[in-house]
């Protein structure tokens, strides 16, 4: 049997909007993945530490407050620094198009905006998370 995909769903920064992160966490769990939810107000350091401790394949970062540019790239950088650059980082939330391009250049592999079907997110983790 294939190893279960392990995913960390994280809320970086001060943003308290956790509806989307929780819905995605649950959809991934229902799709058979191991999901660890960090809870709110995590620094990039906290998130990277949890990802390494939990030995995850992928991290989903959620932010709706506009702080994504200040926080998402830091997670990618810190992962590389800790020798865990193989962990896939994706983002979701209210993220303008021009920032999506910048985030991708910074190593965030995919960005899911409002209205993205859960099936599409699940499929992404399934195909890139192992």
């Amino acid at each position: 049997m294939a190893k279960k995909i392990r995913v960390l769903i994280a809320k970086p920064g001060l943003d308290g909007h956790d509806r989307g992160a929780k819905v995605v966490a649950r959809a991934l769990r229902d799709a058979g993945m191991e999901v660890i939810y960090t809870g709110l107000r995590q620094s990039p350091e906290d998130i990277v530490e949890a990802a390494i401790q939990e030995d995850v394949d992928a991290i989903g970062l959620s932010s709706l407050s506009g702080a994504h540019m200040a926080l998402f790239p830091d997670v990618v950088k810190l992962l590389k620094k800790r020798g865990a650059g193989d962990i896939v980082v994706v983002g979701g939330g209210i993220i303008p198009d021009e920032d999506v391009a910048k985030l991708k250049r910074a190593g965030v592999r995919a960005v899911f905006g409002p209205g993205t079907p859960l099936a599409e997110i699940v499929e992404y983790f399934r195909s890139s998370g192992t």
Partner: peptide, 9 residues
């Protein structure tokens, strides 16, 4: 703690 959050919301 306020990094990146000034005035956005």
């Amino acid at each position: 703690e306020a990094k990146g959050e000034f005035g956005t919301c």
